[in-house]
Design a protein around this nucleic acid. Structure first.
Lengths: 355, 355
DNA sequence: GTTAGCACTCGTTTAAAGAGAGTGCTAACA
DNA sequence: TGTTAGCACTCTCTTTAAACGAGTGCTAAC
């Protein structure tokens, strides 16, 4: 193939007309999922150009890597690079209503868990993609408060309250029955030493001092500290909720057995989702919304998917991430708009009711 | 078609040879998933009969409804009735090792949740079917113990312990700060009135008496009671964990898009699984193991599946149900054996460590 | 009662033909 | 010089037909 010097295809910038054509190709492909041909574009746009002209332009766009042909003599589909340009510069966020969402969020939510489950659920129904959400987390979990109480003759209930009012319970067995006074003393001992500390700040030395002070009840102190450590650690590993996994069957390009099986496994295992969401949470652009196209997300099973994530904040540094997984030809405009709406609503929810 | 009087096909009981042939058909079909022909059976069994004879017998079995032909001139596959007979009278439980299971269960399990998640997981890996488990439940949840403590100036932590040492937490906001003495009084008031009662036994009259006694803090009493009610109610609706959903793709008869999508949805929603497991728990034969073939399970999306359930007991009337979902040609012998093993192991686990 | 043999059925595989959508290129045009 | 009409060509998808093969039911012989 000859390459003339200075020909258009070698330019790095796209001129206005090419942009319009690329946009038309992408828009059309998002809708139909079929490769789009020159004739379609010729009618679809307001450029008033014949299909032949469009063909020339499309050949250029292909050479530049923005679109590609599944096979000779088929229409064009966007490449990852094309999607990327679209998402970065051409997308027009559609303000989404998410009517149901508003209603649902208004309902009294005592449990964070229920709230999160509702969010992913409504989101999946609304967008018709697979959705996931990670529970909000503080960066450093500090112990706020410990309370021991007697449940039965030889059983002690340890309630552990962590920064952000996260509560963990643990039941400890003790050999000899403790009277109320001893329990009170232990409570004071534990709280005076441990409150306000993170897991890294509790030193072995500190523990042995406490055990000494507790005398014959030293082993209980040990058990409680174990429980604290476990409670905090559990809180530190991500809790993730998913919904609408079976939406992937709506999109033929994801629905074949092998891909579907892998994807569903990823959603069930949640392990990889956690990493994905966590990465997204830390990359976190200025708006808190990130788009990963194809291989950009690092998750093998999602190489044919796009993932849109949004970090949300619930005040006090409590941050979580929402993710939407769909085909590459996902309706980015709508998804980003919807996520933005939810960000705002969660923000309002927190302000109104900062329990 | 002529029907001669007294011909074999009209008999209600299967003679020994027919039984053997039916069993061979089923066994073979369980393995291969392909319709099985007369020639295969002729070689497979020790009957030393020619394919022609087998053909005659198979025609009889078909007329009696134990097997059927997907189409003329194909081999035979078992009908639901055939499976049923097999499960009821011909199955030979295979004692299964479940080696991994034993190791995993030995690990220290503080949280019921973790234990259950591990069980379904190992079970799914072992059987290569989709699995589910419902958390153990007591029939009547009684309140054992309430503890209020101050977390912050205007926040009270209510810890609610239910029979079976299930613990619920709730954070309540209060308008005015409470001193330690008031808190102690409230604790005594609540515990003396409510301990040992189930949700139905807490009457409106009782509540108003308590509110009166609490004086200006009556509204806190109300809040606590709400929290108690919610805690118990939450405990009463089934928690269900699933694993290995994507195993359904291993079986072509379940893997087509429509069926797979429905099944996956059922597993994600968990609603229907709950009903299924609950029904199974109450039907509960003498061994605690139930087999539902095809439409027997009432769940629409599982009409092409079989479900094997096992109830397990963790002492103190704490009962839960495990379920395994696979194709109708599931390896019943192995599945039932595996479930039996797990029943036993859970039983031992409880005896050893009745925390 | 059992079995060999054979015609017949029906799903599956393979091959070929045809249709259709879309392209690239050439030549003409404004 | 950019745009456009026209046309041959390519490649997938669908349709049609033919060949294949596993398995049956039936008949007649043992």
């Amino acid at each position: 193939m000859l390459t003339e010097p200075g020909r258009e295809a070698a330019e790095t910038e796209l001129d206005e007309r090419k942009k319009k054509i690329l946009q038309a190709v992408i828009r059309n492909y998002l809708e139909t999922g079929e490769p789009v041909g020159s004739r379609t574009i010729s009618k679809y746009t307001d450029l008033n150009l014949s299909s032949a002209t469009i063909r020339n332009e499309m050949a250029d766009l292909e050479e530049m890597g923005y679109i590609l042909q599944p096979h000779t003599s088929a229409g064009r589909i966007p490449s990852d690079k094309g999607y990327r340009l679209y998402v970065d510069t051409m997308m027009e966020e559609k303000e989404r209503e998410v009517v149901e969402m508003k209603e649902m969020l208004v309902e009294r939510q005592d449990k964070m868990e229920t709230l999160l489950k509702q969010i992913v659920r409504v989101l999946a129904q609304n967008t018709r993609y697979a959705t996931m959400i990670s529970a909000p987390q503080t960066k450093r979990n500090k112990l706020k408060f410990i309370q021991l109480s007697k449940v039965e003759a030889n059983q002690i209930l340890a309630v552990i309250v962590i920064e952000g009012n996260v509560i963990k319970n643990s039941i400890l067995s003790v050999k000899e029955e403790l009277d109320d006074e001893t329990l009170l003393k232990l409570n004071i001992l534990l709280n005076s030493h441990l409150n306000g500390l993170s897991i890294d700040e509790i030193s072995l030395g500190m523990i042995s001092v406490m055990k000494q002070q507790a005398g014959i009840h030293g082993d209980i102190v040990g058990d409680v500290i174990d429980a604290v450590a476990e409670g905090i650690r559990n809180e530190e590993d991500l809790e993730i909720y998913t919904s609408g996994t079976n939406n992937i069957f709506r999109y033929p390009e994801l629905a074949d057995q092998e891909k579907a099986s892998e994807l569903i496994n990823t959603f069930e295992e949640k392990q990889l989702l956690g990493e994905l969401l966590q990465d997204a949470g830390s990359e976190n652009g200025n708006t808190g919304i990130q788009v990963y196209i194809g291989a950009e997300s690092q998750v093998q099973s999602m190489r044919d998917c796009s993932v849109v994530t949004a970090t949300y904040e619930l005040g006090g540094g409590m941050k979580g991430t929402i993710g939407i997984v769909g085909p590459k030809r996902m309706d980015y405009d709508r998804v980003v708009g919807t996520l933005r709406t939810i960000q705002t609503q969660l923000d309002e929810l927190y302000r109104k009711d900062d329990r």
